[in-house]
Design a protein around this nucleic acid. Structure first.
Length: 280
DNA sequence: CTCGGTTCCTGGCCGC
DNA sequence: TGCGGCCAGGAACCGA
């Protein structure tokens, strides 16, 4: 599932291919993909004639800064479970789950393909803060790559939660960008059991967790994102990270550190993978 | 206010 | 081989 590293890989690809080219039109194939404006008919006309100055990422959200305009306007994208943004020629045959097509000059196209239809796309008009339209941004925590993502910050974020650490890590208002894969991986690297209540974590463990989060995300970005799920970068290429996952999706397989069998349990409806020998 | 459960959706997989 | 049902999960929403 696209988590921070996959979204970052997509962002880099978008910045490589889509900038400073006029949007000439488009086609909405599934209305509910467009989260804003409410009237889908207005979506394509709002974008037509603009170009993308740059793509930003906040947590798992992608934000395209649109020009020209006296005031900036924005295009927002969340891939959710199965969303893919592909840069291709308009002649390329439509994928079965194509939800949105944005046409660019020279017959190029930015295509949104999303099997399970949870993905969302927003248009944010000028004069409005993006948070007022893309409401998920309003309660988003710091990005782990922010210089402000310190031990003090993470400790403070976890202090206010009475939940188990695994559940807290999936909450985007505590840390932005983690999903089920990298939450399990970061907990393994920091040797913390997913069932540990946040309040029981020692300062040393929180620092270890903070470091592990940054390392796990960095390693995946360096590998081009995960092999899991149907993640593709904008040119349609899968990543390489899944092959060296420590625990994710490895239930009943030997721990890569101690050989104990990896266990799998359900926490708040999500599967959690861990080694009960390495993690305490 | 906090938090867990449910929901959205499709396709892969398991067991009979 | 065919098919029913379960499972995967990000985040909004609902209700305790």
């Amino acid at each position: 599932m696209p988590e921070l590293p996959e979204v970052e890989i997509v962002r880099r690809g978008l910045n490589q291919f889509t900038l400073h080219q006029e949007i000439t039109g488009g086609d909405v194939l599934l209305n509910r993909t467009i989260a804003h404006p409410i009237s889908v008919d207005q979506f394509i006309p709002h974008l037509t004639g603009s170009a993308i100055a740059t793509w930003h990422r906040r947590g798992k959200y992608l934000l395209a800064e649109l020009t020209p305009s006296p005031q900036t306007h924005w295009l927002g994208v969340h891939l959710r479970m199965t969303g893919q943004l592909l840069w291709l020629h308009q002649d390329q045959p439509l994928q079965k789950h194509t939800r949105l097509r944005l046409y660019f000059q020279h017959q190029q196209e930015l295509r949104f393909v999303d099997q399970r239809t949870f993905g969302k796309i927003w248009y944010v008009p000028p004069h409005l803060p993006v948070e007022t339209i893309i409401t998920g941004l309003a309660k988003l925590a710091l990005d782990p790559f922010s210089p402000l993502f310190t031990l003090e910050y993470l400790a403070h974020q976890l202090q206010k939660s009475r939940r188990l650490i695994k559940t807290a890590l999936l909450d985007q208002s505590i840390v932005a960008g983690l999903g089920n894969i990298y939450a399990d991986e970061a907990l393994f690297k920091s040797r913390i059991l997913p069932t540990t209540p946040c309040a029981d974590l020692q300062s040393q463990q929180i620092e270890s967790l903070r470091t592990a989060i940054i390392e796990v995300l960095s390693a995946s970005i360096a590998a081009g994102g995960t092999t899991f799920s149907n993640f593709l970068n904008v040119t349609g290429i899968n990543g390489n990270y899944g092959n060296d996952a420590w625990v994710y999706n490895r239930a009943s397989q030997p721990c890569r550190v101690c050989g104990n069998l990896i266990e799998r349990i359900k926490l708040a409806g999500r599967s959690s993978h861990f080694c009960s020998h390495c993690q305490k």
